[in-house]
Design a protein around this nucleic acid. Structure first.
Lengths: 143, 143
DNA sequence: ATACAGAGTTGTAATCATTACAACACTATT
DNA sequence: AATAGTGTTGTAATGATTACAACTCTGTAT
């Protein structure tokens, strides 16, 4: 179900986005690290392969990929954005203790109320925050 | 249904939050301007009444109110936060053309999937983006 | 080959919301 | 009147993001 790296490569071509080395690497990283990384994580990791990589390039690439609909921007964090290569509708849960972001299934379309029938909806996000099971059990041990 | 300014004043007392002039003014502004204002909007408007007002005070007050659960932080914007005195569950739709944020009803609890039964959910947000009816009809006229 | 154009990359500087922090003001109590 | 505690203020720092101009790379036409 998840798109392979080759699928993504093809989709870049279809959308007339140049297949530069840097862009492919960003895409590859997102395809292989589905942990909703930040720009800084992507940059730091890819720098090991591409020592001359600029953070601006990472920003540029992510903007292009987001505009093309190949990645989804997650702004559940207050400060920095995160990026998700899974563009299917699903919810995100952020643990306020460990910071991990969990995916969960959501039938978002069933949510859309009558009131929005005259609106054009381009982007749908469901963000929850709280404590994940791991952090919950840690807390119990302490108390 | 919506809490009056007096209700809010009472709730501050209950939660042992000092009833300073500045805090009451921020609360009053939020109660009367349910347009999801930014910090800057609140600050600029209240400055007319309180010329010595500091933006830090607005930030401090909003943080205290948010921690007390009296206001909800909306981070649908990429850059600046917005604040909502309506803490009941509801969705937010942001028009990408005019920037207006619309409220809409959502039965968020019906969304919670089995997968999250072991999570403690403290905060639930549903954010949509797209075009509002007004901006849609404007576009049609142009084309 | 060489020159050229267009696309992509890089690094630095600016932007801007938010936070940190220290000094000041205000209130109530003794 | 002194003091303690709470709240406010202004300035400086922080940090993610963007703007921008110079540079590189690739392919094409001369």
């Amino acid at each position: 179900m998840d798109p392979t790296f080759e699928d993504l490569r093809q989709e870049l071509k279809t959308k007339n986005i140049g297949l530069s080395h840097q862009r492919l690497k960003v895409l590859e990283y997102l395809a292989q690290n589905r942990c909703h990384p930040t720009v800084d994580q992507i940059y730091t990791e890819l720098q090991k392969d591409i020592p001359t990589l600029s953070k601006t390039t990472v920003y540029n690439t992510l903007r292009i990929l987001a505009e093309a609909g190949l990645v989804k921007v997650i702004s559940i964090e207050d400060k920095e954005c995160r990026f998700d290569i899974d563009t299917e509708d699903h919810g995100h849960f952020k643990c306020e203790s460990c910071g991990t972001i969990f995916d969960f299934p959501v039938d978002i379309d069933s949510l859309i109320p009558e009131e929005l029938s005259n609106f054009k909806i381009n982007d749908k996000n469901v963000y929850f925050k709280g404590l994940c099971p791991g952090c919950l059990s840690n807390k119990k041990e302490i108390n």
